[in-house]
Design a protein around this nucleic acid. Structure first.
Length: 286
DNA sequence: CCTATTTGACCTCT
DNA sequence: AGAGGTCAAATAGG
């Protein structure tokens, strides 16, 4: 049985047999997260100097990030995760996004058609602002959720036809964190460049992806924590070490449990599920 | 007056 | 049938 080794441009990680499974697991995750973090920073640099660096470098960075995506997703998807996010009834956002397809007979409130294949991604942030101008068009109470979900469209939908939308919902633990789901990309003039979080959120880029890559929405969310968030961006954590502590801080928190630290409870809740996808017993990934 | 937000009704989907 | 997403009239604020 071979020892699994993960390699990327930032070095390699070997799951050594002389260490405990949990320790190996932590090291692999740590390396993956750090590598992804570095790649994200690199993408920020490329984005800022796009005119000088050019498309080839950008493409290369995307390939690196994609590689992290695939590696992590392979590890996660094999796990068995069945919980839903925060106990809420959840669904694939890319499938639930609807756009008016026709006008109903009574002249107005539309027939809606599910929008498929639209680029969606979810972040968790302590602020709703993202540098774009949004117009709220609805709010809805969601079953089993304490907080309502708000619906926003780009302000420039009418004048520029920008179809970007977002949904914002507070996390369940009463913290000041928000789940923000972006649906579609901005085509309006004041949109931010190529998928980077605007300056108000530190400008650290995050990877967009299709949520329907996953069958399980909670799994997608969890994965998005892994792939998209950098420590400072997620909860104001100061260092990669703290971020890892959040990610790896044990699995004592069961589904629906709360932990004492409100700021990280949702993260612990979600990221603890990673353990299902990593099994080093016998020296191989499950 | 114009623009943004609120909110109940309407619609699709599961 | 129920849940979630969207519309648009009513309302609020500048």
């Amino acid at each position: 049985m071979s020892i699994p080794t993960l390699k990327n441009n930032f070095g390699s990680v070997t799951a050594c047999c002389d260490q405990t499974p949990a320790s190996n697991k932590r090291r692999v995750i740590r390396e993956l997260v750090e590598g992804q973090h570095c790649a994200a920073e690199l993408q920020a640099i490329v984005d800022q100097n796009y005119s000088q660096i050019g498309a080839s470098a950008e493409e290369l960075v995307h390939k690196i990030l994609r590689s992290f995506d695939q590696t992590i997703s392979m590890l996660i998807v094999d796990g068995e995760v069945s919980q839903n996010w925060d106990g809420c009834r959840s669904q694939d956002s890319s499938q639930s996004s609807k756009v008016p397809a026709a006008v109903s007979k009574d002249g107005g409130r539309g027939c809606y058609k599910r929008k498929r294949g639209v680029e969606t991604w979810t972040i968790v942030s302590d602020k709703m602002e993202d540098g774009h101008a949004w117009r709220k068009y609805g709010q809805k109470t969601i079953l089993n959720c304490k907080h309502p979900r708000s619906y926003f469209k780009c302000t420039h939908k009418s004048d520029q036809g920008c179809r970007a939308m977002k949904q914002v919902q507070r996390t369940e633990d009463d913290s000041q964190m928000y789940h923000i789901t972006y649906i579609g990309t901005h085509t309006c003039i004041d949109s931010s460049p190529r998928g980077t979080i605007p300056s108000s959120n530190s400008g650290i880029p995050f990877e967009k992806h299709h949520s329907n890559t996953f069958n399980n929405s909670s799994l997608a969310l969890k994965f998005e924590y892994e792939k998209g968030m950098t420590p400072s961006y997620v909860t104001g954590l100061d260092s990669m070490t703290e971020w890892e502590d959040v990610i790896l801080g044990g699995f004592g928190c069961g589904y629906g449990d709360s932990v004492s630290n409100n700021e990280t409870s949702c993260l612990n809740l979600e990221l603890g599920w990673l353990d299902h996808g990593f099994e080093f017993d016998g020296g191989e990934f499950v």
